[in-house]
Simulated assay, not measured.
Amino acid sequence: MPASRSGRALAAQPAKAVEPADGTRQHRLAVLLTDMVPGARIIRVSQHQPSQTWPSPYTRAYDERGQPMPLNRTQRVAAARWVIRAFPEANWDEAHDLDLATGTLRPTAGPRAHSDGGR
Results as ranks from 00 to 15, higher is better:
Q13C: 06
Q13S: 10
Q13L: 12
P14V: 07
P14R: 15
P14W: 04
P14Y: 04
P14G: 01
K16E: 03
K16R: 12
A17H: 02
V18H: 00
V18D: 04
E19H: 14
E19C: 07
P20Q: 09
P20F: 03
P20T: 08
A21P: 00
D22Q: 14
D22R: 13
D22S: 13
D22Y: 07
T24H: 06
R25Y: 01
R25I: 03
R25Q: 11
R25L: 12
R25A: 12
R25N: 03
Q26Y: 09
Q26F: 06
H27R: 15
R28E: 05
V31G: 05
V31R: 15
L32N: 09
L32A: 15
L32T: 09
L33V: 07
L33C: 10
L33H: 09
L33K: 10
D35M: 14
D35T: 14
V37D: 07
V37S: 08
V37Y: 09
P38V: 03
G39F: 08
A40Q: 05
R41A: 13
I42M: 12
R44T: 02
V45L: 06
V45P: 02
V45W: 05
S46V: 01
Q47F: 00
Q47S: 14
Q47D: 06
Q47M: 14
H48N: 10
H48C: 01
H48Y: 13
Q49A: 14
P50I: 07
P50S: 04
S51Q: 13
Q52F: 15
T53V: 10
T53E: 13
T53I: 09
W54K: 14
P55A: 11
P55M: 11
P55V: 04
S56G: 00
S56F: 12
P57I: 06
P57K: 10
P57V: 04
Y58A: 07
Y58P: 02
T59G: 09
T59F: 08
T59L: 06
R60Y: 00
R60T: 05
A61L: 04
R65S: 15
R65K: 15
R65I: 01
G66L: 12
G66R: 14
G66P: 05
G66F: 13
Q67R: 15
P68Q: 13
P70H: 12
L71Q: 07
L71H: 08
L71F: 08
N72C: 07
N72H: 11
N72W: 07
N72G: 10
T74L: 11
Q75D: 02
Q75E: 14
V77W: 06
A78K: 06
A78Y: 09
A79C: 09
A80K: 09
A80Y: 08
A80M: 09
W82R: 14
W82F: 14
V83C: 11
I84A: 11
I84L: 13
R85P: 01
P88N: 03
P88G: 05
E89D: 11
A90E: 06
A90S: 06
A90P: 00
N91P: 00
W92R: 04
W92M: 05
W92E: 03
E94V: 11
E94P: 00
E94K: 11
E94S: 00
A95S: 12
A95H: 03
H96F: 02
D97A: 02
D97C: 04
D97G: 04
D99T: 06
D99N: 13
L100G: 04
A101W: 01
A101K: 13
A101Q: 13
T102H: 05
G103F: 09
T104I: 08
T104F: 02
T104D: 08
